[in-house]
């Protein structure tokens, strides 16, 4: 048994080193003046100053956040509305809704994006607007995660029972759905929403296909400037990672809050 423990620890350390390697090297690289020998030379904040004053990059971050946030909101609201009807009135529709919401997990983002582009690109309708297209494709892309998160939470709190109980007390069902059920499942919802948000914020493939030139997000900016100064790129990568870290922390916190509520 003892040897197993040692082996496990060695394994954990090895994998952690592998996972940390690109992070740590990028971090050191972004702070050093040059690194062409074994040890990096000189400490500088120059590249951070450059990157953080670069409006194109900053605008890219803002754009990325906007097109990550809007689809998350749209998808969550649409699924919440549809599942309300399913749970209260049309239980037999459940399987159908599930099927269509989970299809995108099989057809990946590239297929969704190229097929949408191929269908609507020349159509001269609102559908051919690249940003509209992008938002809608993102909605489809995060559908499976959103659907599963919401569905599991709704069943975990016994929504049908709560709504019936509230109705007996004289409240309209939809009213109690909005004022009781949704606030109850909000922590879980936030959790899956933040995960979707992080996923969309880190997307490059779909943005490249649909709107790289019209709507340059931070990822697209990094790609376009891939052959510029390596330290500046590293600083940009570190900044993007910090944003991810903040989102992660928020996810973690919303999970813990949920546990706290349960413990009460």
């Amino acid at each position: 048994m003892k040897e197993h423990k040692v082996l496990k620890t060695i394994w954990k350390v090895c994998v952690a080193v592998f996972l940390l390697m690109p992070l740590v090297v990028t971090l050191i690289y972004s702070f050093s003046e040059r690194w062409i020998n074994i040890i990096p030379e000189g400490f500088t904040l120059e590249y951070y100053v450059k990157t953080l004053t670069n409006t194109t990059f900053l605008m890219g971050i803002v754009r990325g956040m906007v097109t990550a946030l809007i689809p998350v909101l749209i998808t969550n609201i649409s699924v919440l509305l549809a599942l309300y009807v399913v749970i209260v009135y049309l239980q037999n529709m459940e399987k159908v809704v599930q099927l269509f919401c989970l299809i995108p997990s099989t057809i990946n983002g590239i297929i969704v994006a190229t097929s949408v582009l191929g269908t609507y690109a020349g159509s001269d309708t609102v559908f051919s607007n690249r940003i509209f297209m992008l938002v809608m494709i993102y909605c489809v892309f995060i559908m499976p995660v959103t659907y599963q998160g919401i569905r599991n939470s709704l069943y975990a709190v016994n929504t049908a029972g709560i709504l019936e109980a509230a109705e007996m007390l004289g409240y309209r069902k939809f009213h109690s759905y909005v004022t009781i059920v949704i606030p109850t499942i909000l922590p879980g919802l936030c959790n899956s929403a933040l995960m979707s948000f992080a996923g969309l914020f880190g997307d490059f493939a779909i943005i490249k296909i649909i709107a790289a030139s019209q709507w340059e997000t931070a990822q697209a900016y990094l790609y376009r400037n891939r052959s510029t100064d390596a330290q500046e790129l590293s600083a940009a990568v570190v900044i993007l990672l910090l944003i991810t870290l903040v989102i992660n922390y928020a996810v973690h916190k919303s999970q813990n809050d949920k546990k706290g509520v349960r413990a009460e």
Partner: peptide
């Protein structure tokens, strides 16, 4: 360790590739 996994699970796409180019 889980935090490390969560962080690196979001480390993908262009930034990850750039980090590996640096490496």
């Amino acid at each position: 360790y889980l935090s490390l996994l969560n962080l690196t699970s979001n480390f993908s796409g262009v930034p990850l590739s750039i980090a590996f180019i640096t490496l």
